[in-house]
Design a protein around this nucleic acid. Sequence first.
DNA 1: CAGGATCCTACGCGATACTG
DNA 2: CAGTATCGCGTAGGATCCTG
Lengths: 127, 127
Amino acid sequence: MTMAMMQHAYDVYENRCPTRLVLDRLADKWAVLILDRLDEGPVRFNHIRRDIKGISQKVLSQTLKKLERDGLVSRAVFATVPVTVEYALTPLGRTLTETVSALAHWAERNMDAVLAAQRAYDEASPA
Amino acid sequence: MTMAMMQHAYDVYENRCPTRLVLDRLADKWAVLILDRLDEGPVRFNHIRRDIKGISQKVLSQTLKKLERDGLVSRAVFATVPVTVEYALTPLGRTLTETVSALAHWAERNMDAVLAAQRAYDEASPA
DNA sequence: CAGGATCCTACGCGATACTG
DNA sequence: CAGTATCGCGTAGGATCCTG
């Protein structure tokens, strides 16, 4: 038991730690993008699909379902014709977006540094 | 172009946006755990391997290499017998750990709420 | 519009064996 | 100790078609 371990109430490094399950969900590119997108307010299915370029309908559907199951996203159905479905953050989900969008914005701010590092690395050891 | 888009200098929702590349690396369970582990100071390969239960040697090796390529992690070789290799965060990597560990700690704090939500969801629509 | 059901394939990853 | 190399399987996920 090191100091590193001590600061976690649960041992996130432990194999079957439940925190891992949550981290599994969060540590997903699409989930991060979706949560970040929902932070702006409720959005309909195909709207998300259009906004987040490159996500397939299947994966969007799956990811939304997982996020809903985790209690992070709510799904509201309106009896219009055709039917309208709105996805939104739950209160729990809203407690997460600050952290998640911090991650997205870190990526944005430090993208150049990362790309530079990659170039340097690739030059040092060419394929 | 919605308001949601406006607050990003780059459009993270865009398919080939370089931010996506960074997010791809960050949105990885093992990378998060490794970065969180390295936050405590330099660690040797097999030490990480032992601490982070369930990670295979192959994936650890791969992930460390990617993190090094991204300039987030440094690799120091010491000419002992047998050889010693220490992994540590770079200055760039250190700017990330606050965010990353925030994610890990959110997972830890809200794990119970998520698990409860999952139970409720599963009860509502049994398989 | 908001998905469900299928088919199919690339590849992520574990297991194993070997090396400097 | 700190990895690389190879094989082989499982599955995530794209493409396509269909529906209330």
